[in-house]
Computed example of a mutant assay.
Amino acid sequence: MALLDTPLCNFGAAAPDFSLAEPDGRVHSLADVAGPNGLLVAFVCNHCPYVVAVADRLANDATELQDNGIGVVAIMSNDYRDYAADSPDNMRAFAAKHGWTFPYLVDEDQSVGQAYGAVCTPDFFGYNAALELQYRGRLDSAGMRPPEGRIRELVDAMLEISKTGEGPRDQTPSMGCSIKWRS
C-alpha cells in the first residue's frame, strides 16, 4: 500500500461529468449530486486505514455541508476485483456502518477517478456553485489520530466556498493509500 499526498488545488478546474451507480443500482450524475452552494466529491474506499480513521467524521461533516446546501458524494474507484474488501456489497455495509447520508458510487471502469485526477483515498475535491474546483485538501488536522481538538479544514473551506465562491489559498494536501488501478 503506497502512501501518497494529493496534488495542489487546480483552482477553477471544471468538475468532470459522470453517471455512476450505487451498489443497489441507483444511478447518480454530477447534476444530481451538486448542491445549490457547491459540491464535495470524495474518492474513498472501504479498506484504506486512512479512510476508516475518518469515516465517522466524514459522515458528521457531510451532514453539516448538506445542511448548508452543499452536495456530497463519495466515489470508489479501486479495482475491487483485486481488493474484495472494496466490493459493492462491502461498500453498502461500510456506508451503513458509518451513517453516510450521501451516495457512495462505484466507478466500475475507473474513468471517473482518472478524469478527476484522484490519486489516493481519501482524496477530496471541493467545488463552488459553478462547479469550479476550489479545494483539494485534507478532511481535518487530526488525520488518523483521535479527533479531539481537530481543525475542520474541509468544512471550513466548503462553507467559505459556499459564501464567496472561492476557497482558501492555503490548503494542506490529503494523505492516503494509492488508488488501486487495474493493470
Results as ranks from 00 to 15, higher is better:
M1Y: 08
M1H: 11
M1G: 14
L3T: 15
L4E: 15
L4W: 01
D5A: 14
T6Q: 04
P7M: 09
L8S: 15
F11R: 08
G12E: 12
G12K: 07
A15V: 03
P16H: 09
S19C: 13
L20P: 05
A21H: 07
E22L: 06
R26M: 14
V27D: 08
V27S: 14
D32F: 07
G35R: 05
P36E: 15
N37H: 15
N37K: 15
G38P: 11
L39A: 06
L40F: 03
L40T: 06
V41E: 10
A42V: 02
A42R: 00
V44G: 04
V44K: 02
N46V: 13
Y50E: 10
V51P: 00
V51N: 00
V51W: 00
A53R: 05
V54C: 11
A55W: 00
A55L: 03
R57H: 13
R57F: 04
A62N: 05
A62R: 00
D67W: 00
N68T: 08
G69I: 05
G71V: 10
G71K: 12
V72K: 01
V73N: 07
M76V: 14
S77Q: 11
N78Y: 02
D79R: 08
R81Y: 07
R81D: 12
D82S: 15
Y83K: 13
S87F: 02
P88V: 11
N90W: 01
M91A: 08
F94Q: 01
K97W: 01
G99T: 00
G99Y: 00
W100V: 00
T101I: 05
T101S: 11
Y104P: 00
V106Q: 13
D107N: 06
Q110R: 06
S111C: 03
S111R: 01
S111I: 01
V112G: 09
G113F: 03
G113W: 01
A118T: 10
A118P: 03
V119C: 07
C120D: 08
T121R: 11
F124D: 06
G126V: 05
G126F: 04
Y127R: 09
Y127D: 12
N128C: 08
A129F: 02
L131N: 12
L131P: 12
E132G: 14
L133H: 07
L133D: 12
Q134S: 03
Q134F: 02
Y135Q: 06
Y135K: 06
R136Q: 15
R138M: 12
L139K: 01
S141D: 09
S141Y: 03
S141L: 02
G143Y: 09
R145L: 09
R145Q: 12
P146E: 09
P147V: 14
G149H: 04
I151D: 14
I151A: 13
E153D: 15
L154A: 09
V155S: 06
V155W: 02
D156S: 13
A157H: 13
A157K: 10
M158H: 12
L159T: 07
L159H: 10
L159S: 14
S162D: 04
T164F: 03
G165K: 01
E166D: 12
E166P: 00
E166Q: 12
G167V: 10
D170M: 11
Q171F: 04
T172K: 14
T172Q: 13
S174A: 15
G176L: 09
S178M: 10
S178C: 14
K180E: 01
K180S: 03
W181P: 09
R182C: 02
S183T: 03
